[in-house]
Design a protein around this nucleic acid. Structure first.
Lengths: 216, 216, 216, 216
DNA sequence: GATGAATGAGGTTTCATTCAT
DNA sequence: AATGAATGAAACCTCATTCAT
């Protein structure tokens, strides 16, 4: 993962057939969808912002919804990528002695990713409730694969006596909500406030760890 | 707060001028806005669902946005009501020896409220990002008044040595995200899963408390 | 059947809910569809010709195709009406000694009808090949009910020894094509030529009768 | 006239400059125009069906209408070809003692031709009413030249006492409508029914002859 | 000759809103 | 208060045609 861990840029590099105008369309769409929401954004607006004729959009995407999917699907894929690496396990076993270590590594990585893709994340969060296909994708990939892996991990650390004995999925939920709670507050609710990111991340990790760890 | 702590019902009781049709309009609008989002819901759809002529909506609400506000504003008011009771403080001082006690009482109360008003909450969450007026209302009331009070409270318990010495607003943020994280997961993301509500609430409180309390 | 045997006028009288604008839309649509064909006629054109906002069309007809159907279906119904009178048979038995008599009566009646509804007939003929629903309606009503009745009739006159012994459906086909051949030539192909209608009709009947009758 | 009396194939052989792609375009256009009508067929659809880029169509035909004309004009020419052979007369005089003989010969020939070119005929019939140029071509060639010749022929046989004394153009009209009535019923309205072609053709000729011939 | 991205005019349809009844 | 026909702007989308490659 480079520093510029941007889904859109990667999209542009990976898919070669993309014309210049097509790229502009995607950039404009992301911006508008993120600012006003999918339903409230008109294709003519996207076209104007992209400096492109309206018809051009529909040459590349059969429908407006296609455009949304073409933007959101890669996001979802990249978001969960690190969690579906097959040998995540082995790596983990040896590398991270403590849940805290794993958490910190994972968090830094995913937070960096999300920071670079805030508009996309915003679209994802906003639109999932209204598009059954997205909901399905989300459930299948995030709720199943990622969640399941986390559950296994938590159970692993529970056996090691590092995490308290509560239902593992509850522990995962609390981990997740704390992290996303931070991100959403930080970047979506109060982006204009002054934040000491490093400290907040550390505090969040500490909070999770205190909340979950066995008292010594 | 009664058991049927429904904003809509209270609205119907408090505002007397409401005709039968008007009530139907509100009910229909809440349902549609919640399911499809404000922008993707048409007034004709609402009219049909309410069994009312299209014009009738505009007799009561000048614009579609007015209708949204007429629905969302009371929600916001009721949501923050318990926090703006002027003498919240005194009450608290004497009643809740520990942050945990306060938290449990407050949580039970507000969770019951939100449970009874999920569609409204969903609308609120979904639409705030796209409507500056709502954002403003939200910031002014929630982010300022409620947040501020909580900050004071946390500082109070910090002085008593019950809560660890981290920035108070961070502590509040973690409290909030844990609670809302639970609610959103429970009612919006996975409402169809089986939940043991009481246990989960208790676990969530425990998690917050462990995360924030001074190790003994 | 009055002299002004117009499907459109009857439509206006029978269906009471029709507003003034709706009538104008129908009239404009019939004119345009008939002149340029369904596919080549735009709804904006119809609206303009009808002196109506484009949206008004879609208030009354969900789609452009609906408009076509709303025009063509009554036409089909009225066209076949006289053939589905239940006791057509009995009436016939006693009234028309000879096929020629029946033919003349029927032809005069239907030709008068079609004369008064040429634009509609033109639409019907032009659009049937391209719209499966219309094709279905046509087959079901015309090709089955009307054709079948004619076949029975022809067989009846064959038994009476008035019509030569060829397959009855062939005899019907020839009767039909002669009549429609006249109508189409007269009104659609060469409407601007001078025609002695009465003579041509009589000649056509004579032609059919000679062609089908048993030589004496 | 060969057995495979196909206008399209002849077109491909006669015009030498035709590239492979151009042929595919014509074939695709005929198919689509015939199935959906000219106005309802898009050039992109034709391109796709022909396996050709959209631009390629316009390299060969300046406009979509040009393409229609490039397809329909040769059809018209071939259709009337046998009637414009200058010495048709002489041939006839000596060859066909009776109108019936002429009719049978002509019909077999033209019916075979039309059978092999049904899609083209369908396009011709469907589009003539909507394109003034086509209407003009049709009138000039068919309605004038062919019709005129037939009129002369009929008058010739009238003088010979074989055909009854009705206006010659009426006799021609009846001949035509009977033949086309058969063809259209056979190939366009009920192509899926089972037909005994030879018998039907013979019956049609007999019908025309009975209808027109002087009773003996 | 062939391509296919790009265009922009125009197509059908939706929608919030108005207004006479 | 309620209706629902009417509106016209704007939505999404299609299409014939052009043009650089």
């Amino acid at each position: 993962m480079s520093e510029h861990d941007s889904v859109i840029e990667e999209l542009f590099q990976e898919e070669e057939g993309l014309t210049d105008k097509q790229k502009k369309i995607i950039i404009a769409a992301v911006e508008s969808f993120s600012e006003k929401g999918y339903a409230a954004t008109s294709t003519s607006e996207i076209a104007k912002k992209a400096g492109v004729a309206e018809g051009t959009i529909f040459r590349h995407y059969k429908t407006k919804k296609d455009l949304l999917m073409g933007i959101v699907s890669p996001m979802m894929a990249k978001l969960i990528a690190p969690f579906v690496i097959k040998d995540l396990y082995k790596v983990i076993d040896h590398k991270y002695e403590r849940y805290e270590d794993f958490l910190r590594a994972m968090m830094e990585n995913r937070i960096a990713f999300l920071k670079n893709n805030m508009p996309l994340l915003k679209i994802l969060i906003q639109e999932i409730p209204f598009h059954p296909e997205l909901k399905e994708q989300f459930k299948e990939h995030i709720a199943c694969k990622v969640f399941e892996r986390f559950v296994n991990l938590v159970e692993f650390y529970q056996k090691k006596g590092q995490i308290i004995n509560i239902p593992s999925y509850s522990a995962v939920r609390m981990t997740f909500t704390s992290i996303f709670g931070f991100l959403i507050t930080r970047y979506l609710i109060l982006p204009e406030a002054e934040w000491n990111d490093e400290e907040e991340i550390e505090l969040t990790i500490q909070f999770i760890m205190h909340g979950l760890s066995v008292k010594s």
